[in-house]
Design a protein around this nucleic acid. Structure first.
Lengths: 251, 251
DNA sequence: CAGTGGTCTAGACCACCGA
DNA sequence: CGGTGGTCTAGACCACTGG
């Protein structure tokens, strides 16, 4: 049995190991037993330390490719929950649609710099006199109305507001601000007259109302968005994890 | 500066370190700088290896308490996204309501062992002649109708079906089957006549329709549940994480 | 540049599984 | 019992930050 770790100079070793393992798994190398060789054995084969190997395996476990059974071995998921695009990720509408194989476009409804509404100020943790950039858009997928989206971003995170193009996240990234985590609230509702017309549905059609807040690594809010999705063309998929040991925050 | 690691015999050392750090953070020890001492320094203080310390810190980062800035230090979240009950966890209705401070109860609508519907067979990955236990319930929170829930579980995962009490998950756990991950699909809809009556709302009221599948560690399906939640009394909250390096599954 | 977190190593012992 | 994954150690070097 031979396995090689392609060692591109700049690459981290454990990533190379992840790739090597994934390759072997996909070619069905361990298919009979659905079981990986023992860790110490793999270490020799790949010529890496056990720590490095375990870091690589941990990544594949997190990804749902492998799973551990203490004392028995590390196994390959036979029928893994098919989450090709692991949801519960922080994605923009543009990216979201691209993953679904649809072309995203949008029609601008509102754009400008304003004083925040009380709701925005609270959600963004902005001082009441700190202005925000607001962008309202009708979102289309393959040319069909899909959602109405109203985003607000504190001005300090944006370059010039007129340089914001199709993707708010790209504009943020251009200034080095990358949302790291987010929170989403979601409920069913009925569309109002105006919204119904924009979305091209009948009045009182069902819709998903979604509020989302995105945070930077240090916990400050970069974005507050309210969206209304047509129920007939949007399924929201999310992945659930088992409880990490439940510890209630006490602060 | 002193810090102690309470060393309960059976406890894993890195968990003890997690607790020690959490304690210090909560008492505001590092409050001025919002910055943890350097790792090598903490190692000496706590008398643990750096690996162990980093494992502990990694847990707190995953929990949203700390965050890293390579080359600068490890910081404490000032205003961390208040997810006191980190959602996107795999919870039962009972547990879910308890976390919200409501008392869950339910009225049974259907119970028994049946041949799976085609939909159930597909979702559960069950052989078409393998029977499933089905349980339909009206779910109440503090006595008010909240949702209709229909769950299906392959018979092999349950003891005797009549020993299933208020919580399906408890019955599963009793046989050693603990769901590890899940997948949820969710969309807005309008309630039908019968469902409206059960939920105590008007016909064509908006509602959240949720499908959920729960998997064991080895990837087999234990549960398939379809639920209908009243829109006016249920907000669905989920936490979003930044993309783990996006690698599309290619199998 | 000094100081920080990030990666990697080699080796030890513990906890659990299954024959 | 032997073999597996899980935890832990001490020490090395790399990559990044910020003055």
């Amino acid at each position: 049995m031979s396995m090689t770790v392609e060692t591109v100079p700049g690459q981290k070793l454990y990533r190379a190991v992840v790739d090597a393992l994934r390759r072997e798994i996909e070619t069905g190398r361990f298919a009979e037993a659905q079981l990986l060789p023992a860790e110490r054995e793999l270490c020799e084969l790949l010529d890496v330390s056990r720590t490095t190997l375990r870091k690589a395996i941990a990544d594949l476990v997190a990804e749902g490719v492998l799973f551990h059974r203490h004392g028995a071995g590390t196994f390959i998921h036979r029928a893994r929950p098919h989450v090709d695009q692991p949801s519960s990720r922080l994605t923009s509408f543009t990216e979201d649609m691209r993953l679904r194989g649809l072309e995203a476009s949008s029609r601008e409804l509102e754009r400008g710099v304003f004083l925040p509404t009380p709701e925005e100020a609270m959600m963004l943790g902005a001082r009441p006199n700190e202005r925000v950039f607001r962008l309202g858009r009708l979102r289309l997928a393959d040319g069909l109305p899909m959602a109405i989206e109203r985003a607000a971003v504190p001005l300090r995170y944006l370059p010039e507001s007129d340089s914001v193009g199709a993707s708010l996240y790209e504009a943020l990234a251009a200034r080095g601000f990358k949302p790291m985590r987010g929170l989403q609230r979601l409920r069913a509702t009925l569309v109002s007259d105006v919204d119904a017309e924009l979305l091209g549905v009948a009045r009182d059609s069902p819709a998903l109302y979604i509020q989302r807040i995105a945070y930077l690594a240090d916990g400050s809010c970069v974005e507050f968005t309210k969206s209304l999705y047509r129920a007939d063309s949007y399924d929201f998929v999310s992945e659930l994890a088992l409880s990490p040991p439940v510890r209630k925050a006490r602060r």
